[in-house]
Nucleic acid binder design. Structure first.
Lengths: 107, 107
DNA sequence: GCAGAAGTTCGATGATCGTCGTACAATGAG
DNA sequence: CTCATTGTACGACGATCATCGAACTTCTGC
C-alpha cells in the first residue's frame, strides 16, 4: 500500500485547520515540532488505542501536515514544515506558539 | 436572552481552530476582517439558509472569534481581533493571510 | 395596531468524527 | 521457521456537525 500525501499545491486551509483542531492531534504535532528527528507512531504517549492513533496520523498525513515513511515495521513521522510554510506562511508557527501559550496559561 | 461570549482567558485553541475550519465560517471571518465596521448577519452573502447562518455565527461567537451585539432586530458582528491577538498572537493574521493566499492560488 | 424584516428556536436528517476491539499484514530477532 | 513488535483494516458505537424548513420572537415603519 502506498501512502498518499497531498502535494504542496493541494493543501487546503480548512482541511489543515480541521486536522489541527483535535487536541490529540495538536499534541502530536507539538511533540513532532519539538524535535527535528522523525518519530515512530508509538513514540508519542497519546493515551488512545492503537487504531485511534492510526486514524489521527492518517488525518494529519492526508491534510498534508505530516509525512510518513516506512522503516521496518515502524512508520516514521515528520512535520512538513517547509511545505506548510510555503503554502500558508506563518500559520504553523502561530499555531505552535499559541498551543504553547495556552498550555502555559493552563498552569 | 443574553449572548454568551467567552472571556479572553477562556479562549481555547482547538475550539478556535475548529470554528475556523469550516469554509462558510472562514468566509464570514474573512469578510468581517475586510472592513472595520460591524456587519449584520444578513450582510454576508453566504448561500445557506437563515437557520444555518445562525448556527455558524453562534459557533464563531462561542469560540470567541466574533462578538455579537443587538441593534434593533439585527445583530452586529465584529471580529474579536484584539482578544484573539492577545491570547494567540499572530494566529488570526496567519489564518487570514493563508486564506487569501489560498483563494488567490485557486484562480 | 399591523405588516414586514431580521434572527432564533426547535426538531429532523444524513454525514462525519473520535473512539474502540478484533483480526490481519509486514518486518526483524532468535 | 517462529515469535514478538509495529502498525493497518474493518466494522461498530455514540457524539457531534452542517444543513434544512417551519414556527416563533422582536423590533421598525407606516
Amino acid at each position: 500500500m502506498t501512502l498518499h500525501h497531498p502535494t504542496t499545491e493541494e493543501l487546503e486551509l480548512p482541511t489543515v485547520l480541521h486536522a489541527l483542531s483535535d487536541p490529540q492531534r495538536l499534541l502530536i504535532v507539538r511533540k513532532l515540532s519539538a524535535e527535528p528527528e522523525p518519530r515512530a507512531c508509538g513514540a508519542f504517549d497519546v493515551n488512545v488505542s492503537k487504531s485511534t492513533c492510526t486514524h489521527h496520523f492518517r488525518v494529519l498525513r492526508e491534510a498534508g501536515v505530516i509525512e510518513q515513511r516506512r522503516l521496518g515495521t515502524a512508520r516514521l513521522n515528520s512535520l512538513r514544515r517547509d511545505d506548510l510554510d510555503r503554502r500558508f506562511p506563518g500559520l504553523l508557527d502561530a499555531v505552535l506558539a499559541s498551543a504553547a501559550a495556552e498550555s502555559a496559561a493552563a498552569v
